[in-house]
Amino acid sequence: MIDMIKVGMADMNTTCSPGVLTTLGLGSCVGICLHDTSTKISGLVHIMLPSSEQIKNNSNEAKFADTGIVKLVEDMIKIGAKRNKIISKIAGGAQMFNFNDSSEIMRIGNRNVVATKEILKKLNIPIVSEDTGGNHGRTIELYSETGILLVRTIGYGTKQI
């Protein structure tokens, strides 16, 4: 039994093979999983908001898509990951509550996904698979040995992406 390394809200962590990174109950937040296909070094960041700009209290880098992903890549390289071998898988960004007038804040899940994709594109990190949107929560597990991402839900089954 391999130990699961838990990543909380606005938190990040890295591991070497065969470590498993997990984050429980992703809602409108987005879990960004990075995996170096050569060294198998992997990282997971659980971001809450799209951008650290215009936010007064932005000292926690893992809270935002822009700063979180950049920091995670740095942390992975520090423990030996190869920058040009990193791929990504993303999950989350649901809209948990429905209202007829979808105000800015209700669409935060979608905005998190859009921001995440923009940052990954800017960093030239390919997104190989994703399970985003919808209106349900997700628990994810990233297996560093294989790069497989397991997505568990309540009522929507479990899948590997």
């Binding site: 109950g25 992703l26 809602g27 908001l49 209290n57 809270k63 649901a94 948990m96 929560g137 309540i154």
Partner: peptide, 27 residues
Amino acid sequence: MSIPSLAIDMAGAILSVPVILFGQVGD
């Protein structure tokens, strides 16, 4: 106040909504 919107799901996912709202100003 508006009409209610109800959701049943994992606590983490449901809580992400108030946490994100609070998260814009603090931790």
